[in-house]
Simulated assay, not measured.
Amino acid sequence: MVQATPGRSASIPGPEDLPRHGNGVSLTLKELLARAEHQALVRSADDGRARAQMAGERLSRLKGRGMEFAEVRAYQPGDDVRTIDWRVTARSGKAHTKLFRDERERPVLLCVDLGSRMRLGSRLLLQSVQAAHLAALLGWYVTARGDRIGGLICHEQGHHELKPRARRLGLLAMLEALVELHTADNRQDPAANGADYWAKALLRLQRLTRPGSLVVIITNPLGLDAPSLEQINRLRRHAEVRLFAIGDPLFDQLARNPGPLPVQLPHHNQPGWLDRRGSQHLAQRWQQARQNAAQLSQHHHLFLSELTAAEPLERQWQQLWL
């Protein structure tokens, strides 16, 4: 489903709430570049609310005993026994320990789902557009912090894999990939063109992730089912993971009051109608997916933040912590 258009009410955001240079449906490089002015929102959330909620969990940018190996030297009293190099110790007959270099440029990988299930928006933005704006906002923040940025942008018809790069080179490559893949024709039948694109993307993400990385995954609750979260959980063995689920109030409305719904299907150029039974099934499927994502994320000890495509990111800054 691409876009749902229920009747407008007074509570629905207006054109003034759209991102600067954006229309909520298409995506341009200009509007993603404009997100640079909002990076302070992430910084303030990261320094305040998130730090209080995640005491002891946040990995410092300067890690001390980082993930990059430096050298081996003789063991000294006070050294962490976990860093003992047992091979050198056995070979020399004397205890030796590994030293690690401080990791000052942390690799940050953004995995963004732009698949057909993200092409829905009942009020302000398509979920795919909000996902791209969230990735851009986090990207500007990460770049300003001095970390390297890369990642994976994907949908049914293709993907862009970006190795982490420093300064703005990595960010600009990320923004251009978001626009290119979002603009690509995504109306073809997913069953014939990569219905398993998300599972493949998560496997590629595992190969791309290096020890000590921060991995940010942006999708909607349908992308956080049990098999997906099992794959994501494997990343936690050597990386820090953050999940962002983009939602839409349409499904809550349909759960309370199911009825015929005007929609535009991804494989047709003209709008159609989803009957009462179909809209009720859609709402139940979404609500179940949302509950499962929350429960499974908690089970795997993964940090999950929920955002909506119906409000500007500026009003949801408290959920934008890393």
Rank of each mutant, 00 (worst) to 15 (best):
H38L: 05
A95K: 00
T97E: 05
E57T: 13
M54I: 10
D46L: 06
A40Q: 15
R73Y: 05
E103R: 14
R73D: 02
M67S: 12
A90K: 09
S60Q: 10
G56R: 14
M54H: 12
V81L: 14
V88L: 02
H38F: 04
D79N: 06
D46P: 02
D47S: 13
G93Y: 06
Q76E: 05
F100R: 08
Y75T: 00
G48N: 10
E103K: 13
D47A: 15
R91F: 01
E71M: 12
E71Y: 12
V81R: 10
Q39M: 03
R82H: 06
D80E: 12
R87D: 02
Q53V: 10
R101I: 07
L62H: 14
A52R: 13
H38S: 06
Q53F: 10
L99T: 15
H38T: 01
R58F: 09
T97I: 07
S44M: 01
Y75Q: 02
D85V: 03
V88K: 00
A74Y: 09
A45F: 07
V72I: 15
F69Y: 14
M54E: 11
V88A: 00
Q53G: 09
D102E: 15
A95P: 02
R43I: 01
R58D: 09
L41Y: 03
V81M: 12
A90E: 06
R51Q: 15
R58V: 11
R73G: 04
G66F: 05
S44N: 03
Y75M: 00
A90M: 08
S44T: 02
G78N: 05
S44L: 06
L41S: 07
A90S: 10
K94S: 05
F69C: 11
D85I: 02
P77E: 07
I84C: 06
G64E: 13
D47I: 10
